[in-house]
Amino acid sequence: MTLNQLLPGQKALLQELPEGLVRSQAIRLGLMPGTEIVCVHKLPRGPVIIKKNKQQIAIGEALAARINVKSTQKGESKGGKEPQKWN
C-alpha cells in the first residue's frame, strides 16, 4: 500500500521512496526504507502528517501516493476519533 492510504493512528514501515532530489530531502528529514512511522492525520485529499518518534512531517498527497509502505498495525476505522496515543 502507499503512504496516503494509511489511517490515523496506523503504524507502518516505509519501503520505497521515489527517486531524485525528493529522496535526498526525505532521507535528510529522517525518512528512508525501513523507518517506522505513525500516520497522525490525513487531510481530506490533502497532505498526510506522519510522526517518527517525536518528529512530525507533512507530505503532500501526490508524493505520499508514490511512497510505498507496509502497515504493521491497523488504524482506527473512519469513526473520526482522536488518533490513539503513540510513542
Binding site: 525528493v22 526525505a26 528529514l29 512531517i57 501526490a62
Partner: peptide, 13 residues
C-alpha cells in the same frame, strides 16, 4: 498553460 508540475510538499512540522 505553463509546462512542468507543481513540486510536492515535504516539510518538517
Amino acid at each position: 498553460l505553463l509546462p512542468g508540475k507543481t513540486t510536492d510538499l515535504l516539510i518538517d512540522i
